[in-house]
Design a protein around this nucleic acid. Sequence first.
DNA 1: CAACAAGCCTC
DNA 2: CTCGGCC
DNA 3: GGCCGAGGAGGCTTGTTG
Length: 724
Amino acid sequence: MAYKLVIIVGSVRDGRFGPIVASWVAERAREHGGFEVEVVDLADVEIPLSLPAAPPKYAGNSYPRPAGMAVLTSALESADAVLVVTPEYNHSYPASLKAAIDWHFTQWTAKPVAFVSYGGAAGGRHAVLHLENVLTELHAVTIRDGLAFPNYFTAWGGRSSARPTRRRVRENAARPAGLVGGRAAVGAEGRTVPGLTFPRSVALHRETVGAAGHDGRVLLTHIVTASAELAATRSRKAKIATLAAVLRAAETAELPAVIAYLTGQTAQDRLGAGWRTLAELAVEPTPEPSVEVREVDAALTEVAAASGAGSVKRRADVLTALFTRLTRGEQEFLFRLVTGELRQGALEGVMVDAVAAAAEVDAADVRRAFMLSGKLSVTGYAAMTGGAARLAEFRLTLGRPIKPMLASPAESLDEAVAEHEHAIVEYKMDGARIQVHRQGTEVHVYTRTLREITASVSELVDLVRALPCESVVLDGETLALTDDGRPRPFQETMSRFGSTREEQVRALLLRPYFFDCLHLDGVDLLDAPLSERNAALRKVAGEHVIPGEVEPPDAAAVLDAAMAGGHEGVMVKDLTSPYAAGRRGRAWLKVKPVHTIDLVVLAVEWGHGRRTGTLSNLHLGARDPDGGPPIMVGKTFKGMTDELLAWQTKRFQEIETHRDSYTVYVRPEVVVEIELDGAQISTRYPGGLALRFARVVRYRPDKEAADADTIDTVRGLLRGDRAE
DNA sequence: CAACAAGCCTC
DNA sequence: CTCGGCC
DNA sequence: GGCCGAGGAGGCTTGTTG
């Protein structure tokens, strides 16, 4: 089968040298033989320059995709390797287009990509000269050394290509040597091509995903071993060393998948296969490990791509084929990975440090780039291939969401206020976090986890489009209101927020309440103090700014007003702090009034993971005022120390009435003091009520079931049902 | 065609 | 979303 | 101080099945 090279011509402006370079390369490839070449000229496929920087994932997303993007996408999907021909990278190259292509390359992680630039917008004579230089040099290298395209780039690109590798020549023998991959690519690893010097003005760039070829060489078993090592130690330093070693051994092409797997994720956004699907595979393991990370990634891509009728079976089939080739250890690892139960004591936080160690760069630089990209696979790849310089290129980009800053809980309003000399106190509203980007008339809305929801929140898009500015990035909360302007229960907001269906979208109107401004009309404000960001916010968002007061003389009054308005509480924020993207620091403190009630333990579930062998999750019941048996209103596993876990494991088996495979049922006589944020309507619990964020405070041996709080007390904790 | 199961999202 | 354990 | 993992509540969408 021919090896497919897709050449993307990215010169969409004037000049049009791109097609010339592309056809030249295509010709060389055809001469060589064994290649299928497809040239995609982006000028022809009409990708608008306003293309979003990070198109939403394809599966299950109704986001309107420009037709041109589909062309690009299908070309990339079919490619074995990609060459992008563009004007001077980073300059005349339209930023949005560059971002879109970048984004795609991070998706097709296993494909080698090279960029050629030819002088760009200089135009006229200079561009022609540059082009001539490029063609001459390419030709000379190809002929003179018998080396192929990527070798040339690898050699020229210099930097970290000398990373240790376990690749072996014979493993490449099956594929054609030539432009990409194959024997020649192996030969180039870590070498420089003698006699080649390139004047800077030639602007021949190497920007690759997978400089070493598309041929992954880290085996899944290596990942499994590393994961086991991580789980075996509690030392953070040891974990970092283990992870860094794997990163160093990996080829650049497989870095994204390796980073994903070792941080408990897959490279695919959502697989559509979880615990149930995997549990029913029942495939005999193979004795010897052989499967490469690349192969796992390819299989999972297929799983994620399955949709429509028959897709459930399709997913199972692909997974069965994969699992058949895995050892027992690999099967177990993949199972835990997919179900989100890796439990190796290291996720992204540790990986950030590991990337820094492996790439020999400052961890702070990695962390910052991660917060700005939102994807550690992207950041890690950049660090490993381009070092600190490449990391420094990450910045707040319109249309590319960053990780939102998070808040820490405060014990009380007093504590929160005391912690900051200059603070702003704002309402804490019970909705969903949103991050809004606007550039001109183009608006994008993202969730807390950076999922794009633009298409399903048109009312927010329209509203932001009308703000008095050219470009802006806002951080805020969105929720639905009742007719008299009070917040609807969280469940109703979510019903609207989570829906993409037309009827539902129209049924409830979402309102935004912005509380931060990260960018305004060309000025990045991430590092500016909150006071400055707040000024920008007020300037641009006007009536859509969340209620609050700067340095209020009476913070308690703000909290009272928030509660009277039916809100969750208040946030107390340090006015001098910068926007610490992705971090949960003390600069933002949340104050939410808590409620305490006494409930009866009805049963306890056996714990998992570090709680294996202990009775962990309590079933909680409220007293029936009519004298019936306690009415279950929820469960909790929170607030228990190890000591308490041990105690209750023993205690509840003493009053056990019966049990099933994972629950011990007990006589309803133990009273436990429960802290909670409130109650909500439930269609699942018999009393029609459920607890929100319930946690154990302490047991009440001094009380009996008859002393427990009633279901009416719980009902009184429904928000909006309180006398304030 | 309606009900259910699974997966993944919000808090 | 919360909490406790741990580096 | 920050990260990790223990697991809670509900909501929506998609595909399958009775």
